[in-house]
C-alpha cells in the first residue's frame, strides 16, 4: 500500500515536471500589442502553471490505477476503504486554498490591473451595425470598415465608447492582438480602455484587426476591420489626412 502511494506520487511529480516544461516553453499566443494583452497573457500563464499539478494528479491516479489495480471478472472485492474525514479535509483545504488563491491573483488583482486608472488620452467612438464598424475619431471624422481602417496611437490610453446602431443587434468589439472585448449594445454606450504598447498592422498579423465577437447574422464572420497601431506623429498626420479628405 505504501509502495502504491510512493509510485503514484512519483508518477505525479514526473508528469507535473513534464507539464511545466511544456507550458513554460510554449508560445501559444498571437502578438500582444497592448498593456491589457500582457495582463491577460500573464493571467493565462499563471492559471496554466497552477493547473498542471491539478491535472496531473488526477491523470497520474488514472494511469496508475489502470495498470496496477486490474482484476477481471468482478468477483473479487477491493478493500472497503472508508473515508475517515482526514483525506476529505485535506482535499478541501487544498481546493479552497487554490480557488481562493486564484480568486485573489489573477482574479481581483488582474481585474484591477486591466481596468487601470481612470481617464484617457484619446477618446474614440465605435458604432457597430449589421455588418460594419464605424469609427469616430476625436477630430469628428467618421471612418467605416468598408473603406477605412482603425488607426491608433501607441503608448496612449485610449477610451473606446462603444455602441450599436439603434435599432440593430448586439455586436462585440474585439481586437485579438489586444485580447479584450466589449459588447456593442443598442441604446447603450459601453466603454473599453486600451493602451497599445507596440506598433503593428494587419498585414503583419491577422490578429491586428477588429472582429465582431457576438453572433449578429449572416455577415458576422466578416464584420472586421483592419487595425494599424502607429507612432503619435503618424497618428496626428492620419487625423489631418482624413479631415482633409472628409472636408
Amino acid at each position: 500500500m505504501k509502495k502504491d502511494i510512493v509510485n503514484a506520487t512519483l508518477l505525479w511529480i514526473v508528469l507535473s515536471i513534464l507539464g511545466w516544461i511544456l507550458v513554460l516553453n510554449w508560445n501559444i499566443f498571437p502578438p500582444a500589442l497592448a498593456r491589457e494583452a500582457r495582463i491577460v497573457d500573464d493571467a493565462f500563464n499563471l492559471l496554466t502553471v497552477l493547473a498542471v499539478p491539478v491535472f496531473t494528479f488526477v491523470v497520474a491516479i488514472l494511469i496508475y490505477a489502470a495498470f496496477r489495480f486490474r482484476s477481471p471478472g468482478g468477483l473479487e472485492d477491493g478493500p472497503p476503504i472508508q473515508d475517515t474525514g482526514r483525506i476529505l479535509t485535506a482535499w478541501l483545504v487544498v481546493t479552497i486554498a487554490l480557488a481562493g488563491g486564484i480568486l485573489i491573483n489573477p482574479g481581483f488583482v488582474g481585474m484591477s490591473e486591466v481596468r487601470g486608472e481612470g481617464g484617457a488620452d484619446v477618446v474614440i467612438g465605435v458604432t457597430g451595425q449589421r455588418w460594419s464598424w464605424t469609427i469616430s475619431y476625436p477630430n469628428g471624422v467618421d471612418v467605416t470598415s468598408y473603406t477605412g481602417e482603425l488607426v491608433l496611437p501607441v503608448d496612449q490610453r485610449i477610451q473606446f465608447d462603444i455602441t450599436s446602431l439603434d435599432p440593430d443587434v448586439i455586436h462585440s468589439f474585439w481586437i485579438p492582438a489586444f485580447r479584450i472585448k466589449k459588447d456593442a449594445v443598442p441604446g447603450r454606450i459601453t466603454q473599453m480602455f486600451i493602451t497599445p504598447t507596440e506598433t503593428g498592422t494587419f498585414a503583419e498579423d491577422p490578429n491586428v484587426r477588429v472582429q465582431c465577437a457576438e453572433l449578429c447574422g449572416q455577415g458576422h464572420a466578416q464584420m472586421s476591420m483592419k487595425v494599424r497601431v502607429v507612432e503619435q506623429a503618424e497618428f496626428d498626420a492620419y487625423l489631418d489626412e482624413i479631415l482633409a479628405e472628409g472636408g
Binding site: M1, D4, V58, I61, L62, A65, A66, F69, R70, S71, P72, G73, G74, E76, D77, G78, P79, I81, D83, I87, L88, W91, L92, T95, I96, L98, A99
Partner: peptide, 21 residues
C-alpha cells in the same frame, strides 16, 4: 470548483486499490 473537486476525489478515491474490471 470546490464541490466539483469533491466529485473527482470520490472518483479517484474509489478507484484507488480497487479490483478494476
Amino acid at each position: 470548483s470546490i464541490p466539483t473537486g469533491v466529485i473527482f476525489l470520490a472518483a479517484v478515491g474509489t478507484l484507488w486499490r480497487g479490483k478494476l474490471w
